[in-house]
């Protein structure tokens, strides 16, 4: 019995050690002075600010879609629900480059071109947000669906008998109960957007001081052999990702 648990603990330790070694090796690759020089570069600062802004915008828009879709999928029973459920997961399973190509081709169609009369997406900052949103929304929807699945529908039904309309019941009862799930969905969408690279590269491009976000920076720096900068930016992304993970876990434990 004891040997069994020790074996499981050892497997866990080996896995964690592997990850710690990866992170440790990355952190030890360059000196703090190099980190400082890298973060002071104007193009890196631009990419950092643009990343933070586009991730926040993409996560916010993703949440606007995820809350109603998650609620609909959790509360509504209808024929073909399994198919719709699978369809909502398509962005999760599609190869990232394919998402970028789909976006690029869509905005070459007549509908896409009509949309671009109002907002230009291809090779613009709006395109960065859209590329991040497409994948991040799927993760946010999954999180919100799980949140509403775990909340009893009974208080919402009682609200209906107390004079609430369906919308009032959703707004006044379901949404406040789901606020921790919403925060978790936002954080997951945000973190996912931060790491997005393929669709952005294909759809928004990798133009310095224009559509360059942190993953693009890593790729651009690597492509010119500037490993120190690539490592520093990677470390910054790791720190940001860990902070988000800690927030999500803290929210999950409180929920």
């Amino acid at each position: 019995m004891r040997l069994f648990w020790i074996s499981l603990a050892l497997i866990t330790a080996v896995y964690l050690l592997f990850w710690l070694m990866l992170l440790g090796a990355t952190a030890a690759y360059s000196l703090p002075e190099v980190w400082l020089q890298t973060v002071m570069k104007p193009e890196i600062r631009y990419a950092t600010v643009l990343s933070l802004m586009t991730c926040t915008a993409a996560a916010a828009v993703a949440l606007l879609f995820a809350v109603p879709i998650g609620y609909f999928m959790a509360r509504c029973q209808f024929r073909g629900k399994t198919i719709l459920d699978a369809a909502l997961d398509i962005p999760i399973v599609l190869p990232p480059m394919v998402v970028g190509i789909c976006l690029l081709i869509f905005f070459q169609t007549s509908i896409g071109r009509s949309i671009e009369h109002f907002i230009s997406f291809t090779y613009t900052i709006a395109g960065v947000v859209l590329a991040q949103f497409v994948v991040a929304a799927a993760f946010a929807i999954r999180t919100m669906r799980g949140t509403f699945d775990h909340l009893s529908a009974r208080p919402e039904e009682v609200a209906l008998t107390l004079g609430a309309t369906r919308f009032q019941s959703f707004w006044h009862v379901a949404l406040p109960s789901a606020r921790r799930g919403m925060l978790a969905a936002f954080c997951i969408a945000w973190a996912r957007s931060l790491g997005e690279f393929g669709p952005i590269l294909v759809f928004a491009g990798a133009t310095r001081m224009r559509t360059e976000v942190l993953p693009t920076t890593v790729w651009l720096e690597l492509s010119v052999g500037n490993l120190d900068s690539a490592v520093t930016v990677s470390l910054a992304m790791i720190v940001i990702a860990v902070v988000v993970l800690v927030i999500v876990r803290a929210m999950g434990e409180k929920a």
Binding site: S152, R154, P155, E157, V158, A159, L160, T161, L162, G163, A164, T165, H172, V173, P176, S177
Partner: peptide, 21 residues
Amino acid sequence: LEPRDRRIGYVPQDLALFPGR
């Protein structure tokens, strides 16, 4: 009629108080 128009008070078995209110 919609539940809100029936003037029926309902207390379910689990009471279903609104969380956080």
